[in-house]
């Protein structure tokens, strides 16, 4: 159950590359937002952003609400097509690949969302929630599904007896684990975590962060970790991008950005975090 399936791709190219991607919402219709007084929405959500993510690397993406970080995450996942710019997966434009390779490239990137309640189909039991995709995509046979799901449940710290439960029968922390298990079920190489721990209490958040750390080490996963919580991002990321008004205003190795922020916006963000004096 490792993510080694696609290791035969060229090693030299970064796993994921975005080249000057831009996306503007609501611009394609004839109605101008400016004309009805909503000119504050007229800027692009993502403006000429480039980024690279190497295999095994965790990239943190921080910024305040409305800065475009979720939109950028969806572009990185291939869920949204940018208006301009390119998304390259292992150095290739996924849309140029044949159908089978396109499907595999999609499976390679999985998302974990903040609202685990909305992200899980309330009418499906854990077995279907987690086991449906790997069967459909031929990773496992239908007869192997139950064992596969039990293995995943146990790996994310849930119990095998949870296999017949519905999402509403889990606590918030357990649902976060369920979302992680579902993402892992198709053996991805990149996890995009969009505020994945933001809704959790600090004690449960620590449990889920520890789970992500150990899964990352075990499966050699890459992660794009999107969050407004600078402490969480610092704990998980090798490199960090600071986003403001659709643009990356600062990027670099996590510790250097946190210790020597260059951009005024990064400094104001860092200064705003309440600090607990520790003994």
């Amino acid at each position: 159950m490792t993510a080694a399936a696609n290791q035969n791709h060229s090693i030299s190219a970064p796993l994921l590359q975005l080249q000057e991607v831009s996306l503007r919402y609501g611009d394609k219709s004839k109605i101008s937002f400016k004309s009805i007084g909503y000119d504050k929405y007229s800027g692009p959500a993502v403006d000429q952003v480039s980024l690279q993510l190497a295999a095994g690397e965790t990239l943190g993406l921080v910024g305040e609400s409305g800065c475009g970080k979720s939109t950028l995450g969806r572009i990185a996942a291939g869920l949204l097509l940018p208006d301009s710019g390119q998304r390259l997966w292992c150095g290739e434009d996924v849309r140029q690949l044949d159908a089978a390779a396109q499907r595999r490239a999609r499976l390679d990137v999985q998302l974990i969302f903040q609202n685990s309640h909305a992200a899980l189909n309330p009418r499906l039991r854990s077995e279907q929630l987690i086991g449906e995709a790997p069967v459909v995509h031929g990773l496992i046979r239908a007869s192997e599904r139950r064992d596969w799901v039990i293995q995943l449940l146990q790996r994310v710290g849930l119990d095998a007896s949870h296999i017949d439960r519905y999402p509403h029968q889990f606590s918030g922390g357990q649902r976060a684990r369920l979302g992680i298990a579902r993402a892992l079920a198709v053996q991805p190489r990149l996890l995009i975590c969009d505020e994945a721990v933001a809704a959790l209490d600090v004690s449960v958040q620590a449990q889920v962060i520890n789970l992500l750390l150990s899964l990352r080490a075990e499966f050699g996963l890459s992660m794009l970790f999107i969050s407004h919580d600078l402490d969480v991002v610092r704990h998980l990321s090798d490199r960090v991008l600071v986003m403001h008004a659709g643009q990356i205003v600062e990027s670099g190795a996590t510790e250097s950005v946190y210790h020597q922020p260059q951009h005024a916006y990064t400094r104001s963000l860092l200064e705003s975090i309440p600090r607990l004096a520790r003994i």
Partner: peptide
């Protein structure tokens, strides 16, 4: 509760939970 917050811990190391 205090220990479970990521601030102040060595990045990448498991948090006390």
């Amino acid at each position: 509760l205090i220990d479970a917050a990521p601030a102040g811990h060595v990045p990448g190391q498991p948090l006390p939970q």
